[in-house]
Amino acid sequence: MRSLHTLALSSALVWWLAGCSTPPAPRAPTAPPPASRLTDEMAHDIAIHALGLVGTPYRYGGNTPDSGFDCSGLIGYVYRARVSVAPPRTVAQLSGWGQPVAGEQLRTGDLVVFGKGRAPHHAGIYVGEGRFVHAPSTGGTVRLDRLNAHYWSAQTVAFRRP
């Protein structure tokens, strides 16, 4: 009886160890980040310039620090000033500009576009560490927000790399 019990325990141990030695399932390869016309240095300059505009008043249709900014005007101003690239003027057009980027591949200077499908409603510039600069609304100013803030984390978001 004792040998039968020992045999059963030995069999269970071998089975358990065999399960532990099974190699892990292969991970899906991570896609390389999309190509960009901007160098890392240019993308960094975009983020720094956007941060320097925090506090500028919001103005619908605005596209200069003197007149104020709306969200797409802010993006256009920063890209033209830092890298001589003229992005599209509307959020709808910005939502198709450049290449899509996965959230884990974000880098400074990428665009953050909020809204669903063909109806995006807001955009900003990613500046790193889960933060973005944007011109939010009438009566407000250009500000720095977190993607994981309650309001923004509830929005549909897409990321674009020009």
Rank of each mutant, 00 (worst) to 15 (best):
A8T: 14
L9P: 02
S11A: 15
S11G: 14
L13H: 07
G19H: 10
T22I: 14
P24V: 10
A25P: 04
P29V: 14
P29G: 06
S36N: 10
D40A: 15
D40K: 15
D40S: 15
E41C: 05
A43Q: 12
H44R: 13
H49G: 07
A50G: 10
L51W: 07
G52R: 07
L53M: 12
G55V: 10
R59L: 15
G61C: 09
N63C: 11
G73E: 00
Y79R: 07
A81L: 03
P88Q: 09
Q93Y: 01
G96F: 14
W97N: 04
G98A: 07
P100F: 06
P100Y: 00
L106I: 09
R107I: 13
L111I: 02
V113I: 14
G115P: 03
G117Q: 07
A123V: 04
A123R: 07
I125E: 06
E129M: 02
G130R: 00
R131K: 14
H134D: 11
S137Y: 13
T141C: 10
T141F: 11
R143T: 11
L144P: 03
L144F: 13
D145W: 07
L147E: 08
N148Y: 00
N148C: 03
S153P: 01
A154C: 00
Q155L: 03
V157P: 02
F159P: 04
